[in-house]
Amino acid sequence: MTTLVLLTATGLGLAALYFLVASGLSLIFGLMDVLNFAHGAFVSIGGYVGWTVADHLSGTFGLVGSLLAGIAAGAAVAAATELAVIRPLYGRPLDQVLATVGLGLAIPALLQAIWGADSRTWLLPGWLAGTVNVAGAHVPTVRFLLIGIAVALLIALRLLLGRTRAGLIVRAGVEDREMVTALGIDVRRANSAVFALGGAAAGLAGVLYGLYQGSVSPGDGTSLLVFAFVVVVLGGAGSITGTAVAAIAVGLVQQYADYASASLGDESVVILLAAVLLLRRRNLQGRPA
């Protein structure tokens, strides 16, 4: 029972990270057909900027500061990417993807040049470094922070997409971008907003991943990105609820399988992916293929 609680909490903590990374990825892909290979780099940038703030400011103040700095850094880099790299290649979808591949290679290398290849230790504030007793299991407090923030983001995104005009434009754009523009709406503004929003979530994920591991390293984002891709495929591009469900499934399956046998976790995620692809006859957009 204790093990089950611990595994579930860890799985949900990972799921929270996957959701933070995949939600932006999914919206960007759904709206713009751009598979953003630079998204992992946004995560890493958020992580390092957050770490730098936490390195200078200790305690809860530093924690809040690093979360905000991570969000700002992720959003800024993502917005710059959209403006400087994605937008000039509009109408050349393949080149857009290739350019993000290039950024995905270059940015982590740049981070490595600045902060070194070795991981940097992240000191948590006292209250966050401990554990919480849940049914006899000592669950690290950080996991709850991760889960709480992911749930908050899920609710915020649902409200944003469901209740605002901007959200309406994004949801419609995921379905049929041409028709949205034919209604007199400039979708490029929605593209920029979605890219910045996705970058902010990725930057936040970078900080949280640093807290979760107690350290940051240049390859963090890339390793999260692979699982985020799996979550996007399982959840359906452009669907926030689908992304959340898929993130939970991947996080839990990974943790439970890892307990059964070390290194089985990652393999089981791929088996899950293959099984779902075999069983459903639908394409990525969630419409029948």
């Binding site: 598979l35 692979v226 495929v233 990652d266 393999e267 791929v270 692809l277 990525l284």
Partner: peptide
């Protein structure tokens, strides 16, 4: 299995398999 998803989805799926 992987060609059941078209286009860019295929890229993601093969990436996941490759990672495995």
């Amino acid at each position: 299995v992987a060609l059941r998803v078209g286009g860019i989805g295929f890229a993601m799926v093969t990436l996941a398999f490759g990672q495995a």
